[in-house]
Simulated assay, not measured.
Amino acid sequence: MLRLTAEVYAEVVAHALSGLPHEACGLLAAPVGAEQVTRFFPMRNAARSSRIYRFDEVEHLRAERTADAEGLALVAVMHSHTHTTAYPSPTDVHDASAFDPFGALLYVIVSLKDPEPALRCYRILNGAIAEEPVAVGE
């Protein structure tokens, strides 16, 4: 299960919308040993594309170092889909397998296909996609 504070949820959706017309991306972190995500690291889509995303390497490294310094663990990758539903594309599955071969991370997708953004979460391991519930609260 992915647990987000209301503030982090709002930040993720706002970042997805602000990235238009391109996909937006970022990383989510939680205190080490805790379940609730308390920090969102918005990142620039280095691909500058409405169909794919790529982390900027410098921003990615900066987010990892900041999370470590704050006692946080990176627990999820976020990106938006500008034209499709919040479900992993074949590219998303391929990238997850290359970036996270042990399935340690969750993958959050915010769909901007409809007027109301839709956020869903998945675990991707060995090409298999499993949806994870999302809880938003304090």
Rank of each mutant, 00 (worst) to 15 (best):
L2G: 06
L4M: 13
T5C: 07
A6T: 11
Y9F: 04
Y9P: 12
A10C: 04
V13Y: 03
A14R: 03
L17E: 04
L17I: 14
L20I: 10
L20H: 11
L20D: 03
A24N: 07
L27T: 02
L28P: 12
A30N: 01
A30Y: 00
G33I: 04
G33N: 03
A34D: 08
E35V: 07
P42C: 15
M43P: 06
N45P: 11
A46E: 00
S49T: 05
R51D: 13
I52A: 12
R54G: 04
R54L: 15
D56P: 04
D56A: 12
V58C: 05
H60W: 11
L61Y: 06
L61P: 06
A63E: 01
E64V: 08
E64H: 08
T66C: 13
G71E: 10
A73F: 01
V75E: 04
V75D: 00
H81V: 15
A86V: 04
Y87G: 06
Y87N: 10
P88W: 05
S89F: 14
P90Q: 04
T91M: 08
D92S: 09
H94S: 11
D95S: 12
D95Q: 13
D95L: 13
A96R: 10
F99W: 07
F99S: 02
P101F: 01
F102Y: 09
F102A: 06
G103M: 14
L105T: 04
L105N: 01
L106M: 15
V108P: 01
V108I: 10
V108R: 03
V110D: 13
L112G: 00
K113H: 10
D114Q: 14
P115N: 05
P115I: 02
L119A: 10
L119I: 09
R123M: 11
I124S: 00
L125C: 02
N126L: 13
E132S: 07
E138W: 05
